[in-house]
Amino acid sequence: MEGDIVQMGAYIGAGLACMGMGGAAVGVGNVAGNFLAGALRNPSAAAGQTATLFIGIAFAEALGIFSFLVALLLMFAV
């Protein structure tokens, strides 16, 4: 019984942790959208900034991956 409650809490926590992925999605979309807006204003400068774009996306996405990791840990490791 006690184990079941712990399990339940872990599953609920995993579900809650998945909300973090939404944040990552917003962040990645924000980075890419702003890059596109800037690139359309000044296409000649865009080519040199794709590396920055990917670094930004990577940083934004890493936090989403953290929440995914927390979810997995709760599911399997707790």
Partner: peptide, 10 residues
């Protein structure tokens, strides 16, 4: 940490 977990997590 983020460097490794990003790749593995993805």
């Amino acid at each position: 940490v983020s460097h490794s977990i990003r790749l593995a997590g993805n």
